[in-house]
Computed example of a mutant assay.
Amino acid sequence: MTDKDDFPDCFGDLEKVFPMGPNGLRETPEHCFYHCPVKTKCLQQALATKDGIQIEEEVLERSTKAGGISFFERWSRKKQAHRRGLKMKK
């Protein structure tokens, strides 16, 4: 699968490849995780969308509240995500 036409219909669709799970967190479905040969590229594509950038910012917020990252690291990562979002608008 190298040609874009060869990708499955769900390729890069955030709600199909990284949907919200029953516990309120996003999860990769089992059929994607174990059986899809392009799962890494697919998830990268899905997370590179505007909605994916918003999800990344939400994860950063939770990490900060849980003490996983510092304020400055969160600020830096959010700034990077924001810049990627601005590039998408051009």
Score class of each variant (00 low, 15 high):
Cys10Arg: 03
Ile55Met: 05
Asp3Ile: 00
Met88Pro: 03
Lys65Phe: 05
Lys41Leu: 12
Lys65Cys: 01
Val17Trp: 05
Leu86Phe: 04
Val59Glu: 04
Gly21Tyr: 06
Lys16Ser: 11
Lys39Pro: 01
Pro29Tyr: 11
Cys36Asn: 10
Glu58Asn: 07
Leu60Ser: 05
Cys42Lys: 01
Tyr34Gly: 07
Ala48Ile: 01
Lys16Asp: 06
Arg26Val: 05
Asn23Met: 12
Lys16Tyr: 03
Arg77Ile: 04
Ala46Trp: 02
Glu58Ile: 06
Asp3Ser: 05
Ala48Val: 01
Val38Arg: 06
His31Gln: 13
Lys79Phe: 13
Ser63Cys: 11
Gln44Trp: 05
Ser63Gly: 09
Leu14Cys: 01
Gln45Ser: 14
Phe72Trp: 10
Ser70Gln: 04
Arg62Lys: 14
Thr28Trp: 06
Glu58Gly: 07
Thr28Gln: 11
Leu43Ala: 01
Ile69His: 06
Lys50Asn: 05
Lys4Gly: 01
Phe33Met: 15
Arg77Glu: 10
Lys89Arg: 10
His35Pro: 00
Phe72Lys: 11
Met20Tyr: 08
Arg74Val: 04
Lys78Thr: 09
Ser76Pro: 01
Pro37Lys: 08
Asp3His: 08
Gln54Asn: 10
Lys50Gln: 12
Val38Lys: 07
Glu61Asp: 14
Phe11Ala: 01
Met88Gln: 13
Ser70Gly: 15
Ala46Cys: 02
Lys65Ile: 09
Ile53Gln: 05
Lys87Cys: 03
Ser70Ile: 01
Thr40Asn: 11
Lys90His: 04
Thr28Asp: 04
Gln45Asp: 04
Asp5Arg: 12
Lys65Asn: 10
Asp5Pro: 00
Thr49Cys: 03
Asp5Gly: 04
Ala66Pro: 02
Gly85Trp: 03
Ser70Pro: 02
Ser63Tyr: 07
Phe18Tyr: 15
Phe72Pro: 01
Asp3Met: 00
Ser76Tyr: 08
Leu47Thr: 04
Lys4Ala: 03
Lys41Asp: 15
Glu73Ala: 09
Glu61Phe: 08
Arg77Gln: 12
Asp5Met: 06
Gln45Thr: 15
Phe18Ile: 03
Phe33Thr: 10
Thr28Tyr: 05
Gly21Gln: 07
Asp9His: 04
Gln44Cys: 06
Ile53Val: 09
Lys65Arg: 13
Met88Lys: 13
Gln54Ser: 10
Asp3Gly: 00
Leu60Glu: 08
Gly68Pro: 00
His35Val: 01
Pro37Asp: 11
Leu14Gly: 02
Asp13Trp: 01
Asp9Ser: 09
Gly85Leu: 06
Leu47Met: 15
Glu56Met: 10
Leu25Lys: 13
Glu15Gly: 00
Leu25Glu: 13
Ile55Val: 12
Phe33Gly: 14
Asp51Ile: 00
Pro8Lys: 09
Lys79Asn: 11
Leu25Phe: 15
Asp3Trp: 00
Gln80Pro: 00
Gly85Asp: 04
Thr28Phe: 08
Pro8Gln: 06
Lys4His: 03
